[in-house]
Amino acid sequence: MSTVTTQTGHPSALAEFWYYFSRNKGAVIGLAVFLLVLFVAVFAPLVAPHGPTEQLRDKLLLPPAWMEGGEASYLLGTDAVGRDILSRLIYGSRFSLFIGLVVVTLSVISGVLIGLVAGYFRGRVDTFIMRIMDIILAFPSLLLALVLVAVLGPGLLNAMIAISLVNQPHFVRLTRAAVMAEKSKDYVVGSRVAGAGTFRLMFLTILPNCLAPLIVQATLAFSAAILDAAALGFLGMGAQPPTPEWGTMLAEAREFIQRAWWVVTFPGLAILVTVLAINLMGDGLRDALDPKLKRS
């Protein structure tokens, strides 16, 4: 018996992904900026002109290079204790990306596990889990993170744990909704009829089909984590000086806003640009991964 021939020239999944992703110009720009930040973070010791904690006693609050009194080797000027701002920003990108990565990993793993359990078993388990998530979501996230850090003690690691905990209900809800939608599909019932057990159904059958919205949410959580970490740093509850973390840098520079604008502006800009780039990228990911938005 002959078969119907499949449509010729199916683009590979990656080519298709790139087609939809590249339609969104903002996303491509976001990706480019993000890659630049990533590059700078990885090769910080090679890229940075000075050490992040190297102090020059005779060059306090030096203005940026293009201004009067600036020096070419201190492109963005120096701070109140004579450290090169550009170098500190470059080293700071390491912390920001590291924070984003750790927070997203922690919150995705715990959130997906909890959401999977809630969405698959439903009933009392579901109600119990979702009420706890509702309670976490009812707090202003930064406030909750502050309280947690206050309990755990200030520091980068504790800040990351706190932010993960605050971020995680989003993943729980998203996973739960996706699992509930997938669970009633025919292929899941088919697997059950073939004798697949609970564990197999949850992790091998259902979970891989719920990943697309989670990837999008993960990028957005990444930027939120950077922002939250900077906020905690600014409030003195995150990374401690002299760590060149962007939020901490802002906090240290607070008193010089009037006299030396560059000390506050550049760390702020760094946060803004990075977060914006990641958010734009997340938008593009959603365009490419969410089949509902696909136009073909």
Binding site: K185, Y187, V189, G190, S191, V193, G195, T205, P208, N209
Partner: peptide, 24 residues
């Protein structure tokens, strides 16, 4: 609970061929 033997005696084919195969 069903034994694997009994399970395998009855199988099902669904209406919608787009939803009945795991897309991943």
């Amino acid at each position: 609970p069903l034994t694997a033997d009994m399970r395998s005696k009855v199988q099902i084919v669904f209406q919608n061929p787009y939803g009945s195969l795991n897309p991943r």
